[in-house]
Nucleic acid binder design. Structure first.
Lengths: 343, 343
DNA sequence: CTGTTAGCGCATTCAG
DNA sequence: CTGAATGCGCTAACAG
């Protein structure tokens, strides 16, 4: 491996001079020496050792990104947004996936701390477990004590700059819109009981229903992914085919679950939206190719990832939490229904 | 930031001793001192500085991963596979996306070289441009001269261990299967002319057709993504509705293009598979939720990513290229057709 | 078993 | 403008 010293010797200059021309220092170097150094560097194929630079400078150029699952389009979009701003600033990204294990999230923050990344970005819902949340916060504090910056997209529970999706608000708006379509009896594929995002969306949805004087939705809990949505919807199938008291609309707390629900209904010959309406949340990119196209609450995922990283990188006083409002978008999977027969 | 020296002082031991207990060295340390050090470390919240470790040891624990687009399920799956084996080995992953720009791929290898990652993984098709390929290879050579390991998933064009998808073979097998269903006139959404993967799949498909004595397929080039598939298919629509000489089956050289094609046909009232059969390639995860379910050639994407990283990490003599055979899987998007009326 | 001492590759004072 | 010297945080021989 060729080092700066090799280059300096090869060019017949001092180490310091070589360093100055090769690293964009503020100091000026004479044209002739500069040329010599640059020549030697390219000839030898010199590549700076960023680890050494980071050590000497006390500041690196890598940022850490922690997501639950890269294969989930939701996180892929957020990661993509964050990586674009990272790239635009000459930063390199270290990515870790927790596969929805909070312990791994904590472990990863520790790892990123050891890597001395200049900022870490935590994407994804917090868990309701106060114990793990406390431990995660402690780990983050340790990291921040060392000068690290942290930002998240999700709930503002970590004392960090946070891009907060309007989960409750969006779900409430969705509920009102759906009610406006004539729906009265709802089911909610509610995800895991311990996931704050899922919880907030359920609460927002149920709260809006209550505000409208409508009956409480039927809740079915399960995993936060596609198969979780499938299973939950399958368990619902009976309630939907029953002519009386049947739910006419099901809200899955995220799109991938809604996709699973669509599949479950399809497999059982239940037509969407004729037999039941279905709505999701997030507006992941793959949605537009579904049949029927899924109604949902749109979140600007890439922007959120990008914005979160900006928050981490440009420490603004008093700009802790930024709320992002979701926009209800109605597509083919939800339809207007006639007034219900009185119970 | 608390350093090893702080810990050593706090524990009343030497730097070396502290290092030995905290970093899993082979050397043994007495129980009492060990306890003191561990206590001091946790009390102070010590986190090793991996950059310094890497410098001192001359070996890091980060690997680099370069993909074209993280949002594309194809790359997400490969990345996921690679990241799983990385994690199992205690390695951390630096991810870069090229957004299909070969220049960025070269630049990223340079960056990863500067980071002194212990291995780099290049995923995605090569371009047919010999000039960029040469420059990329030079950059890789420089990296390897420094002791770096490289592996790819794609074509074996970089003098590196490579997991090679059986593109031509899989496409050929697909062509034969489709012909067996009675199809005679095909169209191929061929992707960019300069992308080797696209090229190989087209060639394999067309070659098999020729071998069967069937007419050459109609080729439509375009971008390698969903919208490219949409546009290409839209341009085809006339040829399909024409009763005579019309193609009965279209092969998109990858699944995301096929998804776009499905959308284009749907928007035009062309039914799949009644009016035209459609097949893709890759078997990305999102496929199972499409209607109609898409026929394709299955590639074990995660395994390929995982395997490639293993190749990079466990340098085996003479195991340069590993071919992965794709498996044709027929679903609802392709149907059997009656014998064609003679021209 | 434990402590001392050199570097790893580079940025940066500080002199000249 | 240029060079010599110091230290970043840690590991790995060497001595005790």
């Amino acid at each position: 491996m060729v080092t700066l010293e090799d280059v300096a010797r090869h060019a017949g200059v001092s180490l310091a001079t070589a360093s100055r021309v090769l690293n964009g220092s503020t100091r000026q170097v004479g044209a002739s020496l500069r040329a010599k150094v640059e020549l030697a560097a390219t000839q030898l194929g010199y590549r700076p050792n960023v680890a050494a630079q980071a050590l000497a400078r006390g500041a690196g150029n890598v940022i850490g990104l922690v997501v639950h699952d890269l294969v989930d389009p939701y996180f892929a979009a957020i990661a993509d947004g964050a990586m674009r701003v990272a790239e635009s600033r000459g930063l390199v990204v270290m990515v870790g996936t927790t596969h929805r294990d909070p312990e791994r999230e904590i472990a990863y923050v520790s790892t990123l701390n050891a890597q001395r990344v200049c900022a870490v970005l935590l994407a994804g819902s917090r868990t309701a477990d106060p114990h793990v949340t406390r431990r995660l916060r402690e780990e983050l504090d340790r990291y921040r004590e060392g000068g690290g910056r942290v930002a998240c997209v999700g709930q503002d529970l970590l004392d960090a700059d946070t891009v907060v999706p309007g989960n409750a608000e969006g779900a409430a708006e969705l509920a009102r819109t759906l009610a406006g379509l004539g729906h009265r009896r709802f089911a909610v594929l509610a995800g895991p009981a311990g996931l704050v995002t899922a919880r907030d969306r359920v609460a927002g949805f149920a709260g809006a229903l209550a505000g409208l004087g409508l009956p409480a939705p039927r809740l079915v809990h399960g995993p936060f992914d596609r198969d979780g949505g499938y299973t939950a919807a399958a368990g619902l199938a009976d309630g939907i085919t029953a002519p009386d008291e049947g739910v006419t609309c099901v809200f899955a707390v995220n799109d991938v679950m809604a996709v699973g629900a669509l599949a479950a209904f399809r497999d059982r010959g239940i037509r969407v939206p004729q037999d039941v309406s279905v709505a999701g949340f997030d507006d992941i990119a793959t949605l537009r190719d579904l049949v029927p196209a899924l109604s949902t609450v749109r979140l600007p995922l890439q922007d959120m990832g990008a914005r979160a990283l900006e928050l981490a990188l440009d420490p603004v006083e008093e700009a802790r939490a930024e709320l992002v409002t979701g926009e209800v978008v109605l597509r083919e999977s939800t339809r207007r229904v006639g007034p219900q027969a009185p119970g």
